[in-house]
Amino acid sequence: MSSTHEVDLQEPDYRFSLANERTFLAYVRTALAMEAGALAVVQLLPDVASEQWRRVAAVVLAVLGLVVAVSGYRRWASNQRAMRRGRPLPDTWLIPVLTASVAVASASAVVVLLVSR
């Protein structure tokens, strides 16, 4: 008989574990794309905006990449725990934040491209 401190863990269906892993890898790809975008803004767009604007944009993208990578791992781990315990998957704040961040970055890129030369 298990005590109140022990949690009955069960192995989830491997298809759900693999789907959770694929989702985590999508977060990693998104984080890498943000990091690549940060480097591209600084290195490849000298004529688009001032150096200060490019550096700010690069830092924002790099920080977002870091947040997405770390949060993606935490989401993967919490989903795995929930599946093993037979509990509902936890809610996440990452999806709306990521959506808003990409929308702001895209809108900023459009504005910069429209006002540059």
Rank of each mutant, 00 (worst) to 15 (best):
N79E: 15
N79V: 12
N79T: 08
N79C: 13
N79Q: 10
Q80A: 14
Q80D: 15
Q80W: 04
Q80R: 14
Q80N: 14
R81H: 09
R81I: 03
R81Q: 09
A82Q: 08
A82T: 09
A82I: 11
A82P: 03
A82W: 12
M83H: 01
M83C: 04
M83T: 04
M83W: 04
R84V: 02
R84W: 04
R85N: 05
R85E: 09
R85C: 15
G86E: 12
G86I: 02
G86F: 04
G86A: 04
R87P: 00
R87W: 14
P88Q: 10
P88T: 04
P88Y: 00
P88R: 14
P88W: 00
P88E: 09
L89C: 00
L89V: 12
P90L: 03
P90S: 00
P90W: 02
P90C: 05
P90V: 02
P90H: 04
D91I: 09
D91K: 12
D91P: 12
D91T: 12
D91M: 08
T92H: 05
T92N: 07
T92D: 08
L94D: 11
L94P: 11
L94V: 07
L94F: 01
I95W: 15
I95E: 14
I95C: 11
I95L: 13
I95H: 15
I95A: 15
P96G: 06
P96W: 05
P96V: 05
P96C: 03
V97H: 10
V97N: 08
V97Q: 11
L98G: 15
L98N: 13
T99Q: 11
A100P: 04
A100N: 00
A100E: 01
A100W: 01
A100D: 01
A100M: 02
A100V: 08
S101V: 02
S101P: 01
S101G: 15
S101Q: 07
V102D: 05
V102S: 09
V102I: 10
A103V: 00
A103M: 02
A103I: 00
A103W: 06
V104C: 08
V104N: 06
V104R: 07
A105E: 10
A105H: 07
A105K: 02
A105S: 11
S106G: 14
A107Y: 03
S108G: 14
S108D: 06
S108P: 01
S108W: 08
S108E: 02
S108R: 02
A109K: 02
A109F: 09
A109S: 07
V110S: 11
V110E: 10
V111S: 02
V111M: 06
V111H: 06
V111K: 03
V111G: 00
V111A: 07
V111L: 05
V111W: 13
